[in-house]
Every structure is written in structure tokens, then in C-alpha cells.
């Protein structure tokens, strides 16, 4: 049985997973304004219910063994070895498909409620957010449907975040080939088609790996190549190469700042 508290966690996890960086208990605790032990406790419960995956043993050991690396380094390499351990000593939280579904439903109800509260009742954004935090837990699927219908199936909440559809599908999360991107659009590589392992490896050595942020700077017309930026480097990618790089649309930068801060303050 899922409690309101658990729902809060799922929602927070979902939102954090849309941001950059690994999903750690520390970040979650910060986001919710609670102590890490509380978070760990809740994570265990969520895991028991199959909403999240956290006890990744292989990754978990990294911290312990990474420390040993320091002893190995001596002389000039010492500092280097020490820093090597830190980089990957992290345990990440993942939402399971079940958790994703639950979280998306909540996000949908929250954002629909916000729309309703601001558009229909005329509340200010701040209050609408506070109220919506309570409403999201009590809406039944039926009310949710009617609400969406009445509002004309809006695509975004008042803050500009996308509202998932009934199936929990979020438009912005769509994965499309890089060649379908527009100029100045940012995204994150989801995968590279695997029919060509050579291409995949070559791109990997250049740093064009899945989960890498990529920005389209310019597109030559008439099926010409794309100019993309990855890290500090610009690459020209032919259309046919770009069509094999499936990319997730990144959340637009401007929107992120305000929205998250507002929600944090509300807690």
C-alpha cells in the first residue's frame, strides 16, 4: 500500500531524475529538507514495494575499494590516485518502471491541479503549488480525467513544465534522432544505433557517448551536416550519422531555475 509520504518521495525522485547529475540520497534529502537517515529509511520501504532500486551492490563496493587505490599510488601519482576513487564512489537511486508510472501519475495530477487552481480559481502560482501538493494525493483517476478534459488537456503546468498524458508519457522526454533537432536545441544522447559497432566505438572515443549532453549549433540546409557541441568541442556530423544518434530532448535551461526553487521553498 502506498502512503502519501511515499508518493512525495516518488515525485521528488522523478523530478530530480529530470535534472543533471546522479540521483543520490543526499540530493534527495536536500530536496525534501529532511535528514539522510530518514531518506534511507524511506528508500528501504520503497524498495521493498518495488518502486525504486537502490542496493546496487557492485556500485556500492566502489567506495570501499576505491579507497584502496590510494595505497597503490605512490610518489607522484598519489594525489591522482586519491581523486580517482572519489569520482565514482556513488550509489544511485533508480526508479523502477512501476515507480516511474506511479511518479508520473502524481506529477500529472499535481500539474493539472496547478493549472486548475491558477486558470480557473485565479490563485497565484505559489499558493497554487502548495494546494496542488495536497490535491495530487486525493484525486481519483476519474476526477483526474474530468479535470484534464475541462482544462482542454493542457500540455504544461503554469510554471511551464510538461504534463504527462494518461499513460505517463511526457512529450519532452521523447527520444528522436539528433538530425531532427533544431538549431540551438539541447539534448542528451540516449543511444547510438548498434548496427555499426565501429561508428559507435569511434563516437565513444570522441566522447559522444550515451548520457552525454549535446547541443546543436548549426544545421546546413538541404540535408547538409549538423554542427554540434559536446563539452568544449564542436563536431560536424553528417545527416546520416546524426540520424543514428537517438537523443532525448533536454529540459530547457531557463525553466529549470525558477521552478525547482519555488517547489523547494514550498516544503
Amino acid at each position: 500500500m502506498i502512503t502519501e509520504k511515499m508518493e512525495e518521495y516518488l515525485e521528488a525522485l522523478f523530478k530530480l531524475s529530470c535534472e543533471e547529475g546522479p540521483l543520490t540520497p543526499t540530493r534527495l534529502a536536500e530536496h525534501l529538507g529532511v535528514t539522510p537517515p530518514t531518506v534511507l529509511d524511506m528508500l528501504r520501504r520503497l524498495e521493498a514495494e518495488g518502486y525504486v532500486r537502490y542496493a546496487d551492490t557492485a556500485m556500492g563496493q566502489a567506495r570501499g575499494r576505491g579507497g584502496k587505490g590510494v595505497e597503490k599510488g605512490h610518489g607522484k601519482g598519489e594525489t591522482g590516485a586519491a581523486s580517482r576513487g572519489q569520482g565514482r564512489a556513488r550509489r544511485e537511486i533508480f526508479l523502477t518502471p512501476k515507480g516511474q508510472r506511479a511518479a508520473r501519475t502524481l506529477v500529472r495530477r499535481h500539474r493539472l491541479s496547478e493549472r486548475f487552481l491558477t486558470d480557473v480559481l485565479g490563485l497565484d502560482w505559489e499558493s497554487a503549488h502548495r494546494e496542488a501538493c495536497r490535491m495530487e494525493h486525493v484525486l481519483s483517476p476519474e476526477v483526474e480525467e474530468k479535470l484534464a478534459e475541462m482544462l482542454g488537456n493542457p500540455e504544461t503546468c503554469p510554471h511551464g513544465y510538461p504534463i504527462p498524458d494518461q499513460n505517463g508519457h511526457i512529450r519532452e522526454e521523447e527520444i528522436k534522432p539528433l538530425c531532427d533537432f533544431c538549431v540551438d536545441e539541447k539534448g542528451r544522447i540516449a543511444r547510438v544505433e548498434e548496427e555499426e559497432p565501429q561508428l559507435l566505438q569511434y563516437l565513444a572515443s570522441l566522447g559522444l557517448l550515451p548520457e552525454t549532453d549535446i547541443e546543436v549549433k548549426d544545421i546546413a540546409p538541404f540535408g547538409g551536416p549538423l554542427l554540434v557541441k559536446v563539452g568544449d568541442t564542436q563536431y560536424a556530423l553528417g545527416r546520416e550519422v546524426a540520424s543514428k544518434i537517438w537523443t532525448r530532448k533536454g529540459p530547457a535551461k531557463a525553466r529549470r531555475g525558477i521552478g525547482w526553487k519555488g517547489e523547494k521553498r514550498a516544503r
Binding site: Q61, G75, A81
Partner: peptide
């Protein structure tokens, strides 16, 4: 000494 960097533990 030439010390290669270690990768993730696993």
C-alpha cells in the same frame, strides 16, 4: 613508476 588510473571497482 607508471601508474595507470584505476577504473570503477567492478
Amino acid at each position: 613508476p607508471i601508474i595507470p588510473f584505476s577504473y570503477a571497482t567492478d
